[in-house]
Design a protein around this nucleic acid. Structure first.
Length: 277
DNA sequence: AGACAGGGGAGTG
DNA sequence: CACTCCCCTGTC
């Protein structure tokens, strides 16, 4: 079984912090599906054992090329974020497939993680192809162009997000999405937000989790609570102000700060795996 | 069984 | 700009 030595990496935090919806624990392994890739992985101390993809893919996917300590030095600017870093140490932001990421986070709007996982699974079963590793069976994620039937999307429990998925499906291609980052953060964000069903939070998730914009700071209800409490004396501030503040306050790796604050809040509330987003 | 959580959009003040 | 209602599904 191939393996690789890793530093500053925590597989469980990375896979269970809510950034991914197609990772599943099975008999001591995590099986991870990403677009048309399927691999398994487990960690023992500094050793990562894996199968199904090559080392190059793994390093890129888990962003093992990044110096996490350097990122901590940049974002660790107060006691609260320091506590989050101590609690979530080793959590890395993965580099997802942009299309799968876009559709997944369209599904995340007003939805719980459990439900998002279910919808993404149903979409894959219905529109993707079978994939198998060992005894683990799953499906590839459907390609752009295949998600245009609103009725079927509703049958996959997408609910009112079905129309938005179809809109995205008809508006973008893989080439379009892969070219987006070169336009820069603001322009890429504006383009994503042209898709009905994609506003600030969803756009920033896609930019952060699939386009390497590590300064993007998606604000969901959990992060909103934390920012209000820790940085605005509990007063209610507009999401726009919060985002503006956070991107300056935490700087070029604000997205990492966001993910640590988010994961800490959820762990403190006893929701390490699963329920609400 | 009825309230509520969860982003985004549309409409209104 | 801010506020309110609705979209759908699931849980409590």
């Amino acid at each position: 079984m191939p393996n690789i030595e890793v530093n500053d990496f925590d597989l469980a935090h990375t896979l269970e912090c809510g950034q991914l919806f197609r990772a599943e624990r099975r008999e001591g392994w995590y099986y991870v599906a990403c677009r048309d890739h399927l691999f398994k992985v487990r960690q023992q101390n500094n050793m990562l054992e894996y199968d199904g993809v090559d080392e190059e893919f793994l390093v890129r996917f888990f962003a093992l090329d990044l110096d996490l300590e350097a990122i901590y030095r940049k974002i660790n600017v107060d006691p609260h974020i320091d506590a989050a870093i101590r609690q979530c140490r080793g959590l890395r932001i993965c580099r997802q497939d942009p299309w799968e990421c876009l559709v997944s986070f369209i599904c995340s709007s007003a939805n719980t993680i459990t439900n998002i996982r279910k919808v993404v699974k149903l979409l894959s079963e219905r529109f993707g192809q079978k994939a198998k590793l060992d005894d683990y069976e799953t499906h590839t994620f459907p390609k752009p162009g295949t998600l245009n039937d609103v009725e079927s999307l509703r049958e996959a429990k997408a609910g009112f997000r079905a129309e938005s998925i179809a809109v995205a499906n008809n508006l973008v291609t893989d080439e379009y999405l892969h070219a987006l980052p070169s336009a820069g953060y603001e322009a890429a964000r504006e383009r994503l937000m042209q898709i009905s069903g994609v506003a600030d939070k969803t756009a920033d998730c896609v930019l952060l989790f699939s386009m390497d914009f590590l300064s993007a700071f998606p604000i969901d209800t959990w992060v909103k609570q934390v920012i209000a409490k820790e940085y605005f004396h509990g007063q209610n501030v507009s999401l726009h102000k919060m985002r503006e503040f956070a991107m300056i306050y935490f700087g070029q790796y604000a997205g990492y700060a966001q993910e640590y604050l988010y994961h800490k809040a959820r762990m403190d509330a006893g929701r390490g795996k699963g329920s609400r987003k």
